[in-house]
């Protein structure tokens, strides 16, 4: 596994919902090496720390990377001022992505909540009709990438906290329902309570589950051990790095 650091041209920028933006970069070397579930560290001019953003989609043929992020503060706001034709300074691809079988023994379920929806898109694309995507948002005006998910052929279930679109409430109930008919794997990305619920439902159903964690990061490459998470692995408690040992971990090993 290797990563690169450099400035790459932005070939497309789109505003999705609210303060959420989609960027496509031309970076063939990175695209060639990227795996689903990995992330990039984006430099924000005037800020010390880079912003870790999950890779939404990789197109190895076109040599492009798609990144979707929400403006949450000064750093992401600065990055969002970049437009098509500008250069984005990134370190990528970073971290340890999802374990994805080429021949899964049954249906694959992806669970995405809010800004945890983008990193799961390429899983839905990989498995198409053999995938169910359960996506949760705060309300109808926060929904993103729904058409992209529909286009993958995956059965897509929308949920909103306020019930303004789709199923009202959290993703736990639809996931539980979906697991009744069996599944090969559950993959989840989103807020911690959602990940915890997804890992628990998968465990109860006896289905392997992987979750993508988020934590405040320093270097992003494993050197500074800032982004710690605790797991129980091989019967032992271990403090690992979200950036290098993750961000994807097995659902049943994470101490939430």
């Amino acid at each position: 596994m290797s990563y690169f650091c450099g400035s790459y041209p932005i070939i497309e920028k789109k505003a999705l919902a609210g303060q959420i933006y989609s960027y496509t970069l031309l970076c063939p070397q990175i695209a060639e090496n990227a795996h689903i579930g990995q992330f990039v560290q984006i430099k924000a001019e005037g800020y010390m720390l880079r912003r870790p953003i999950s890779i939404c989609q990789t197109d190895k043929e076109k040599g492009t990377l798609r990144l979707v992020f929400e403006v949450r503060g000064g750093g992401t706001d600065k990055i969002s001022q970049l437009g098509a034709g500008d250069m984005m300074d990134i370190i990528a691809p970073l971290g340890h992505g999802f374990t994805l079988s080429d021949a899964p023994n049954g249906k694959v379920i992806v669970v995405g909540g809010g800004i945890g929806v983008p990193p799961m898109l390429d899983i839905a694309k990989k498995y198409g009709e053999n995938c169910t995507a359960i996506l949760g948002f705060r309300s109808f005006d926060r929904i993103i990438l729904d058409k992209d998910y529909f286009a993958t052929g995956a059965r897509t279930v929308l949920c909103t906290d306020d019930g303004s679109v789709g199923i009202k409430g959290t993703l736990a109930a639809p996931l539980k329902e979906e697991l009744k008919s069996g599944a090969a794997a559950v993959y989840a990305c989103g807020p911690v309570p959602m990940l915890k619920a997804a890992a628990e439902e998968a465990r109860l159903a006896g289905v392997p589950c992987e979750v993508s964690l988020e934590q405040r990061m320093g270097c992003g490459v494993g050197a500074c051990v800032v982004c710690a998470c605790t797991v129980i692995r091989d019967g032992k408690k271990q403090v690992l790095r979200v950036c290098k040992d993750g961000p994807v971990f097995k659902g049943d090993e994470v101490v939430f």
């Binding site: 405040r216 990061m217 403090v239």
Partner: peptide, 24 residues
């Protein structure tokens, strides 16, 4: 050593605060 409970880093004007707690 396991170090401190995260978050262990915060951005500051022209700098950062860290509290890794010697995880090694």
């Amino acid at each position: 050593k396991d170090g401190n409970i995260p978050p262990r880093i915060a951005e500051t004007p022209s700098g950062i605060l860290n509290s890794v707690g010697l995880q090694n």
